[in-house]
């Protein structure tokens, strides 16, 4: 088997709970594992609501945080054990596109500066002409032209343009993996399609994989390959994106998908849902399933044990005892 591009092995990240801290530690990511293959390039959506740990995951993969326990391997090398050469390669090959295209620019510099910084920091060693060509190529890829963008200041660009410049910047480094943290949620609906289209193009034509972090299942559905759905730091369901969305198994994922407003006035939400009070939701069950307090089909076993992932279909797993053949009998 070929070596995976990125591998997370039982990664746990705990915030707080230090020696002097009075508040309880927060487990943002709990015994989480993920594999992204090198070839073929894939778009892996990581879906979940706020607090599910998806941004923590992005920060871990980008090396901004280190795991409390577990290992993150890039091409088989632990991020914490890389030598400087490996680290530089990793920094170049794993790029990020963030949620808010308004906050990632320094408002005092022209757009050209973004690209100059890339060339300088990664010592691409290009001469003037090569540099210009490389920038132009990257911009063309995202449907922009250098002459209309580079001399402008960030505030003169639209949100869609800014986000595309960020993708172009990432592409210039010829990355293998782009961690895209909600890249389209701050962009207007009519412009989202363009960014998503660029992501598909990068995957198919340039073999760049994406870790696509989102709360929006409809965009994941349009471009995703293998999806992970997170709930409070654990994977509740994973597998083929379309398979999960068309036929969700976990009660949480069912509720999540049932809550997406259908863009058709003829199809209204059928039932009212009810959430338990805050206290009940926050009550942590030290053992057992984290969805227990909200689950409509909770069983006794759910309070006793943490459900592992059960196979429900080919390329479709879910962490719910409803699908445990032993319990079901």
């Amino acid at each position: 088997m070929p070596e995976p591009l990125l591998e997370l092995q039982n990664v746990t990240k705990v915030f707080g709970g230090g020696l002097l801290s009075t508040s309880k530690p927060i487990v943002a990511l709990d015994d989480y594992s993920l594999i992204i293959d090198d070839i073929p390039a894939r778009i892996t959506p990581i879906a979940g609501e706020s607090g599910s740990g998806k941004t923590t995951l992005a920060n871990l993969v980008l090396g901004y945080l280190s795991p409390t326990s577990g290992r993150i391997l890039y091409r088989g090398v632990d991020l914490n054990a890389m030598n400087s050469q490996q680290r530089l390669a990793y920094r170049r090959e794993v790029q990020a596109v963030f949620q808010d295209p308004y906050e990632v620019y320094n408002p005092f510099y022209r757009v050209q500066h973004v690209f100059d910084m890339v060339v300088r920091n990664f010592r691409l060693g290009l001469n003037q002409q090569e540099r210009r060509d490389r920038i132009e190529e990257a911009l063309n890829l995202v449907g922009l032209r250098g002459e209309e963008i580079l001399e402008k200041y960030p505030h003169q660009l639209s949100g869609g343009q800014r986000q595309r410049v960020m993708v172009a910047r990432a592409y210039m480094l010829r990355p293998r993996l782009i961690v895209a943290d909600e890249p389209v949620s701050a962009v207007d609906a009519s412009l989202r399609a363009m960014i998503l289209d660029i992501m598909l193009n990068l995957r198919d034509e340039h073999h760049i994989s994406f870790l696509y972090i989102t709360h929006d299942l409809s965009t994941a559905y349009q471009i995703g390959d293998d999806m992970h759905v997170l709930f409070q730091g654990t994977t509740v369901e994973k597998g083929d994106t379309a398979g999960i969305i068309d036929n969700p198994k976990h009660p949480y994922v069912q509720q999540l998908i049932g809550s997406i407003p259908v863009p058709d006035p003829e199809i209204k939400w059928d039932t009212n849902i009810h959430l338990p009070s805050e206290e009940e939701m926050r009550a942590k069950y030290a053992r057992g399933c984290r969805f227990y307090p909200r689950c409509p089909s909770a069983m006794d076993v759910c309070r006793q044990e943490r459900p592992p992932l059960f196979h429900v279909d080919e390329d479709h797993e879910t962490a719910c005892f409803l699908y445990d053949t032993v319990v079901a009998e």
Binding site: L191, R192, A193, D216, Y221
Partner: peptide
């Protein structure tokens, strides 16, 4: 028409409708 076509759907995968902004 553009707005309606640009709605992402979870019912069907459709080719993405690409458009410029303002």
């Amino acid at each position: 028409q553009l707005l309606i076509e640009a709605i992402p759907s979870i019912a069907e995968k459709k080719p993405l409708k690409v458009s410029e902004g303002l």
